[in-house]
Design a binder for these strands. Structure first.
Ligand SMILES: [Mn+2]
Ligand SMILES: [Mn+2]
Ligand SMILES: [Mn+2]
Ligand SMILES: [Mn+2]
Lengths: 217, 217
DNA sequence: GCTAGTTTTTAGACTTGCCTAAATATTTTA
DNA sequence: TAAAATATTTAGGCAAGTCTAAAAACTAGC
């Protein structure tokens, strides 16, 4: 149906589109795709001809309805494979992204529906992100960044914004994991750093950490 | 490491090489790869520069030691994924080939070693073909084609030569499956057709069928 | 052993996806 | 609001992998 490159672009536009109302800029997409702006322009033209995106020169790009559906299916596959890798093959959450990045492009409806069944229809991936169903529907959790909490507030860790291996390893090292309860013992006005309480210990974290952790109060 | 196309060529050469001592001809490879002879020549040159094959113009092509090892790893991945699809996801043996054809190219050592473990280190794929281990070792079964048996001989079905969906569906329809005992009740000299005895019934089969079934006596 | 037929290679071209450099459009700043 | 800075697009090119047509090399038949 679509080439590997086309699929990766669609997914990238989808992820960038979430962050704002405006169209996705060429440079933002180039950054995300680790390529040059001129290459992005080429690809956008192609996707536009295929009616997968809506594009006006210099005005940024938007996913069309078809484009959005396609992107959601790729996201679905990516996240289902991540669950498989962690639940069945014993990967840790910082090892799955790269492999899922390849597996998400395997073309087989049956493979994905059977995998979904085999995994018992999981609702979230190992990073707390929602898994769209076969129709592209998924529930948006009401969550907030840990950095938004004030002293005394507490909640449950339900996701991470940054899924880089480096960040996830930092969390592992400090026993910060999905489902854990976190309470803000203190928040420093000057730099936004926090003292947080985990089950067994307290810990001081920088705003770079607290602004990449999603909490459900 | 290697491109998708390079990997598919290596695997094709590997499979064709099994059938004879001689080098693999350009046309045979073109047929197998569903492409043109001129494209094959181009690719062979490339593989030859990369020392994956031994190639002399007009003389056919052979896998080098490195090429053979690479091909064996791809075959290993292909067959492990086939086992996964049948054992874990409920695919039938005639549905797995195409999907495995894509899955075999996913690049991750850990993925394959963990998958192997998850599947409990299977020795054969759903078509009875041996699965090479991480070092490329595998056991060659002593098997013979059903068409080589004479009247009165019997054995166990241990593999199929043709794994096309059409042939496998024919076998399913007639309850011919891996592990079944088959006895040759009669063999027609004129056209080689056979009357065979399965557990619950007897059946007449053409040489096109009997010459694609492997038997262990 | 020569020649006709077959196989293989070469030559030149196309598509996809990428690049650099240059041109053009938009946005910011003074 | 016009120049300066920034963002985006265009132009031209490259590598991989494929194709068609033509040339060259093998192989069989006489
Ligand atoms: Mn990807
Ligand atoms: Mn994820
Ligand atoms: Mn393949
Ligand atoms: Mn098989």
């Amino acid at each position: 149906m679509f080439s590997l490159s086309e699929e990766n672009y669609l997914k990238a536009i989808f992820h960038l589109q979430k962050n704002s109302e405006a169209g996705v800029s060429t440079n933002a997409l180039a950054e995300e795709m680790q390529t040059k702006a001129s290459s992005v322009t080429d690809m956008i033209k192609k996707l536009s001809e295929k009616k997968l995106v809506i594009y006006e020169k210099y005005r940024g790009v938007y996913l069309s309805e078809t484009g959005r559906k396609t992107a959601l299916q790729i996201v679905r596959k990516h996240r289902l494979w991540e669950v498989f890798l962690v639940e069945k093959l014993g990967f840790s959450w910082d090892e799955v992204h790269e492999v899922a990045e390849e597996l998400e492009h395997i073309k087989s409806e049956k493979l994905i529906s059977e995998l979904d069944k085999f995994l018992n229809y999981p609702k979230r991936d190992p990073h707390g992100d929602p898994i769209p169903d076969a129709k592209g529907h998924f529930q948006v959790a009401n969550k907030t960044l840990l950095s938004n909490l004030s002293k005394g507030e507490k909640g449950t860790l339900v996701g991470v914004k940054d899924s880089s291996s480096e960040f996830l390893k930092y969390l592992d090292k400090n026993a910060i994991a999905l489902g854990k309860t976190i309470e803000v013992l203190d928040k420093e006005d000057f730099d936004g750093s926090m003292l947080i309480q985990l089950k067994e210990k307290s810990l001081r974290i920088s705003p770079m950490v607290s602004s990449n952790i999603y909490i459900k109060i």
